[in-house]
Design a protein around this nucleic acid. Sequence first.
DNA 1: TTATATGTTCGATA
DNA 2: TTATCGAACATATA
Length: 266
Amino acid sequence: MPELPEVEVMRGYFTEAVLNLQIADVEFLDPLNKVFQSPKDLIYKNLIGHAFTDTHRIGKYLFARISNGRWLHLHFGMTGSLQVYNDDYSQPKYTRLAIHFEDGSRLAFIDSRKFGRVEIVDSPDTYQENHKLGTDLLHIKPADFVKALQNRKVAIKTALLDQKHFAGIGNWIADEMLFEVGIHPEEPCEKLSENELKALLKSAVEIVKTAIREDTHYGSFPDDFFVNYRKKGAIHPDHPHSKVASLRVGGRGTFIVPEKQKLKQG
DNA sequence: TTATATGTTCGATA
DNA sequence: TTATCGAACATATA
């Protein structure tokens, strides 16, 4: 479940569970090496005998500093997650990378669908630069957010999912913020006012902070969060007469409350 | 069997 | 050249 809040929660988990433990072994469990963006021996060489000394996150991208000065970069794709376990028998299904520590604990990078990525990089900064990754959503200034979106013709939702200018928004958060502000996902960016764009950022930050506070446990999200009703035909309590409708925007499944989210005229 | 899934990238097209 | 669009990636589940 990896959008910004999920990755931030995993960063905290990583930090608490394995920081400063010496790495005793590394297992690679993806025979076709789809998730390993660096050669396996390079990953192995950089991890073995070292420890993680720090963590960092930019949008949905997680970085762990290795005691040799380099960084392990983890991206979770659609289905990635982390889990600590203790022995071969309890290794989670779909573990792709397993890092064993001196105290016997192990960290699994789990990813059934294999859209996730693992690699050794020089630093979060250089990665961000080389991959044209935008500013983390929690740190972008409203003026820069507006600048990144105004005067473009693309659908607002498509632009929100683009990680190039600001990073961290994924499919459910995009739907959530567009619902809150009352904007149709297919509205061209150029038709939105500066105030509407600023409202979107404010909404996004609130959503993300709430999700992090609740450890991204959906069951404990506020009852009026749209994600609780994000399926065709559902009824949001604030809109009892407007069933949730589904559409496709930029190739992604999209849900709206038609009564609240209407395209502007002209 | 078909459709969908919380993401990113790359090639084609305008 | 820049902006946008759609397919592709690999696998599970309903």
